[in-house]
Amino acid sequence: MDPKAGAIQARLQQQSSIFQKLEGDLTEVITARQRLDSQLSENEVVLKEFTLLKPHNTVYKLVGPSLVSQDQAEARGNVEKRLEFIRAEIKRVETQLKEQEEKVGKKRGEIMALQQELQALQPSGPE
């Protein structure tokens, strides 16, 4: 094989494995984002439930195997804090997602350029 083509081939293989790793990382970030989303909606539902409480509705928190009664205001405060935390996390993961997508896109471009280079060399091969 043409030594030049061989060199490109080797680089292509190397870049492809990097690309695959990047894509795997991206999938992980997406999964994290989805998990946060479901946590967000679950906590929102709970908070909504708390706003509808009347004084006789005692709130219990599951601690290990037992239910411990908790002050309504305190429980609401906890969930509000949790929501804040989740929203901050979503923002963080969102930027991570954008960065990762850019990385994957850039790598894809590099690989396509290498493939074109390789193809350009091909016709000269059989000659």
Binding site: N43, V45, V46, L53, H56, N57, V59, K61, L67, V79
Partner: peptide
């Protein structure tokens, strides 16, 4: 009755309230 409202929280409700829930 005590109703599970999610994320580890439970609320004591009247039967009618639980039914609404």
């Amino acid at each position: 009755v005590v109703v599970d409202i999610g994320t580890g929280y439970y609320v004591r409700k009247k039967r009618s309230e639980a039914r609404e829930h």
